[in-house]
Deep mutational scan, measured.
Amino acid sequence: MSRESDVEAQQSHGSSACSQPHGSVTQSQGSSSQSQGISSSSTSTMPNSSQSSHSSSGTLSSLETVSTQELYSIPEDQEPEDQEPEEPTPAPWARLWALQDGFANLECVNDNYWFGRDKSCEYCFDEPLLKRTDKYRTYSKKHFRIFREVGPKNSYIAYIEDHSGNGTFVNTELVGKGKRRPLNNNSEIALSLSRNKVFVFFDLTVDDQSVYPKALRDEYIMSKTLGSGACGEVKLAFERKTCKKVAIKIISKRKFAIGSAREADPALNVETEIEILKKLNHPCIIKIKNFFDAEDYYIVLELMEGGELFDKVVGNKRLKEATCKLYFYQMLLAVQYLHENGIIHRDLKPENVLLSSQEEDCLIKITDFGHSKILGETSLMRTLCGTPTYLAPEVLVSVGTAGYNRAVDCWSLGVILFICLSGYPPFSEHRTQVSLKDQITSGKYNFIPEVWAEVSEKALDLVKKLLVVDPKARFTTEEALRHPWLQDEDMKRKFQDLLSEENESTALPQVL
């Protein structure tokens, strides 16, 4: 008996699950189920560990084997000379395990699969056993689809999209007709009724959600790893209520002995410091949205989908001078704002400069500016000194954290500008005749005249004003913003236009 009217009423009120309206889709043409990776026989039982391990490696599972009696060998002398080797079968990115008779397991190899009674669906509900069930008529011709799209860092995100009359449910929550939600590992998919569980979705590319604290899981769906560094790992996640993407940084307390840091400095109150950081608001710094204190720290951040500045300059790639100017102007505005709010970044580098898009002209935002507030000064500097390429001379020669101030950030900005303009770092371990530390503390950077011949004198002058060993003589952010190279009204107008595109209400910060 159909429950279409009941569920449609529920759909009209929406769902609290991570779902959002989605535009129309072009329906895929039908194809045989076997060619799409559906096993030839149905099963109602969950797999054992041996079955799972075989399939996850990209080899055929026991459900897909063919009797050897149906095959015969071709003698080598009868092999056609022009026969080309077969292409290897792509490894599946996800697996659906059937929970009921009449449904088959599915190895997801393609990027898009339609499910329903219509014969054009890649996964067609046409098993005779299924057709005899009382629920068969409640399934729509095109009930739902599972697909994946390219996300940040060229990774993939799996989604389920509801197109049914009676509802598609993920972990008992209604997706909603015309809406989608991301699928995470071990999600249970039910059709027409929330208790009519048909599939379990296994994402073969992500970790299980159960490793994360419950308070975090209640608000966010964790997904793929976006990156990792000395101070922690960053994962893509989704807000459950809105389906908006965020980035979540995970900082290990054990790695940084944060408990010991608190004992050594009783004034170090991470929760208080995070609340201060959350109040920071500038178009060129990453917004801190939320914070969870569990076995590790979880910092929920605004997501930038254009990648890191590092990706644009790695491998001796240089940027156009006009692009360097647009990016560097924004970096200076961001660091100036942090300094005005009493925050020294201490870890400025291309990896911590994020881009809003893949376009050459785009907004940038500074991230990882609050680590000293979370990890403690000593722990952070011990970590950073392991990779000193961007560290100021006074940091390398000081004991502990004494003896330096916000000028350290201006040195790091000078190193970043040098790399963007030239395509190579000013200080490098590859210069074996002088140690990296000695290069930095003496201010002897690697200047290649033929490379810098293409760079304007004004740009080079600003680099020199920032890479000054004496912090008292080094340019401040205010002085850098007043430098002739940055007195470019076309560049500032472009920045204002980019801000307006992102948010019509965002105004250009005042600069002296």
Rank of each mutant, 00 (worst) to 15 (best):
D6F: 00
V7T: 05
E8L: 11
Q10V: 06
H13V: 15
G14I: 14
A17V: 08
Q20W: 06
Q20D: 01
H22N: 08
H22E: 07
S24E: 11
S24A: 13
S28D: 13
S31F: 10
S32E: 11
S33Y: 06
Q34R: 08
I38A: 11
I38D: 13
S39P: 05
S39W: 12
S41H: 10
S41T: 14
T43Y: 12
S55E: 13
L60T: 06
L60P: 07
E64L: 01
T65R: 02
T68S: 05
E70L: 04
S73Y: 14
E79G: 06
E81I: 06
P85Y: 15
E87N: 09
T89K: 08
A91M: 03
W93R: 03
A94L: 02
R95C: 04
L96W: 01
W97S: 08
L99R: 14
L99S: 12
Q100C: 12
D101C: 14
A104F: 09
A104C: 06
N110E: 10
N112M: 06
N112Q: 10
E127R: 10
E127H: 15
E127L: 11
P128N: 05
K131S: 07
K131T: 07
K135A: 14
Y136E: 01
T138K: 07
Y139C: 03
S140E: 01
S140Q: 01
S140K: 02
R145C: 12
F147W: 03
E149V: 14
V150D: 13
V150A: 07
N154R: 04
D162E: 13
G165I: 12
T168H: 10
F169Y: 05
E173G: 15
L174V: 10
L174E: 07
G176A: 09
K177D: 14
G178H: 11
R180A: 04
R181D: 05
N185E: 04
S187I: 08
S187F: 09
E188R: 11
I189R: 02
L191R: 11
S194I: 06
V198N: 00
F199V: 02
D208S: 01
Q209M: 01
Q209I: 10
S210V: 00
S210T: 04
R217V: 01
D218E: 06
E219L: 04
E219T: 04
Y220D: 04
I221S: 01
M222T: 10
K224T: 01
G229Q: 03
G232I: 00
A237C: 05
E239K: 09
T242V: 07
V246Q: 04
I248S: 08
I250N: 15
S252V: 09
F256W: 10
A257T: 04
I258T: 04
I258L: 12
G259F: 14
A264V: 04
D265K: 15
V270W: 11
T272E: 06
